[in-house]
Design a protein around this nucleic acid. Structure first.
Lengths: 258, 258
DNA sequence: CGCGATCACGGTACTGGATACCGTAAGGTG
DNA sequence: CACCTTACGGTATCCAGTACCGTGATCGCG
């Protein structure tokens, strides 16, 4: 058994026994039968000893993304994130022990969140590069990355809590939902109707309704039911602005590099 | 000038001059003209001295959510997250100085991410409770919370980098996109009426009407998908909590359904 | 075999963040 | 004035993390 493994085992055991803060690095080193210096040679900090090797995983994911031949960026990322889940699944019970500890120690929870953010950042950059430099694309990339990561975390947490019997199936379903979320807009043409967003209004409902009705009736050039749904961005002062092409799909015309 | 303010000023100045790690707590205390102990009396750690008071903000957001009367959970959360952006905007240049520092120091970046995660968690729980205990709802709550937070962060970062001239407008647009993302999956086509979302707005009625009219008139050059839309979330049964008359946001905005 | 180089380990010392405890001066109240 | 509260400074201590040095084992190579 390697020194690294002995350290990990000692750390997990001690964290279980006394708690994380109550355990010093010296304690861990002593139980593992090594010196304190040796601990820090193998693990950068007391926290690192119980976390998986995110650097390796990030590298693996980077590789998978680079060699992906998915049709859209979301799909590529949704496929890549499975590597993370698989990594946890392979750990088995150890992952659950870690979860039990990190759930109770804020510092460790924060570190785990920070790690997840690294994945999210990687995904965001990948998607953003895929979709090109338009400003809407940047927001969209952000949303997609966040969706993939949080959906993954959702499934992962369910498995960690033993709520998920078949995490593979669940991750597939979750990713399908994420992909659908971002692709479902294209298909059908509008059948008529109006969609109006009015942001931040503190007027009385009656006033608003009256105003809307008035607005609907005032469209002489085009009948209300002939209109199509279309979100409207509120403009602070100029009503002229607020024109925006609806967020596009993962564009095939975009710069897809492969 | 209070001790707290002196400490903050000293900290920001020193972080700018020597960098974060190269500045000790003693340095900060000394420059502020107080003892080291006093520093820790006012700020729990060296990191806390430059970050905004997230606890207060979380409380404010909790209140707003509790008194929200939005139609859907996403909308309620999308409204609430504006408080965070506003808080940063009010800080003005100080927020930008902090951003310059945190961008360079990994430890601070992680802490900021952890703070954002607290908002996301709050949102997730709020949405989940709103939507009920179904398993799909849990995932959906996760996705919504993640979308709102990351969209907010996107706008916030743009403002911090001086890329956003009108962050208010951008946050509205971003939230509109988020809301649209989750409402656009219409199970059935609309029947040809109008669906109106009204979030609170402090604009003049004329402007709102103008925006609506502009939207209805603009149907000629609409985007290809133009999508009809209906919300799929069930409306929540009115909670029982006592309403607090908050000074800022008294009354409901209207909501209309076809 | 012998010898130098490398490597992994242990020990010591130091910096600095964070906590606990104690003493004290200022300000408010009866 | 006596009393209490509050805020502050100082000291001691713990512990994570870094730097440095010494040593024993192992390997490569003549």
């Amino acid at each position: 058994m390697s020194v690294r493994d002995r350290l990990v085992d000692a750390a997990f055991d001690l964290f279980d026994e006394r708690g994380y803060e109550q355990t010093t690095v010296d304690d861990i080193a002593e139980r593992a039968g090594v010196g304190r210096t040796t601990f820090f040679r193998h693990y950068r900090s007391k926290e690192h000893v119980i976390f998986p090797d995110h650097d390796r995983l990030l590298e693996a994911i980077t590789n998978r993304l680079a060699t992906s031949n998915a049709d859209t960026a979301v799909v590529a990322v949704a496929e890549a994130v499975r590597l993370v889940l698989m990594s946890y699944l392979e750990e088995g019970e150890r992952a659950r022990r870690r979860y039990a500890i990190t759930s109770r120690v804020p510092a460790l929870r924060d570190r785990e969140i920070a790690s997840a953010a690294r994945y999210q950042r990687l995904f965001r950059e990948f998607i953003a590069e895929w979709m090109g430099p338009s400003p809407q694309a940047a927001l969209r990339a952000e949303l997609m990355a966040a969706a993939v990561v949080s959906a993954h975390n959702h499934v992962l947490r369910r498995w960690l809590r033993r709520e998920a019997i078949d995490p593979i199936r669940e991750i597939d379903a979750a990713m399908a939902e994420v992909v659908a979320l971002f692709t479902q807009r294209a298909p059908e043409p509008p059948t008529g109707g109006s969609l109006v967003f009015v942001l931040r209004d503190n007027r009385e409902p009656d006033q608003v309704v009256a105003a809307i009705r008035a607005a609907l009736n005032a469209t002489g050039d085009r009948a209300p039911d002939g209109g199509s749904a279309r979100p409207v961005e509120p403009s602070r002062s100029q009503p002229d602005r607020g024109r925006r092409a609806m967020p596009g799909q993962p564009r095939p015309s975009g710069r897809a590099r492969r």
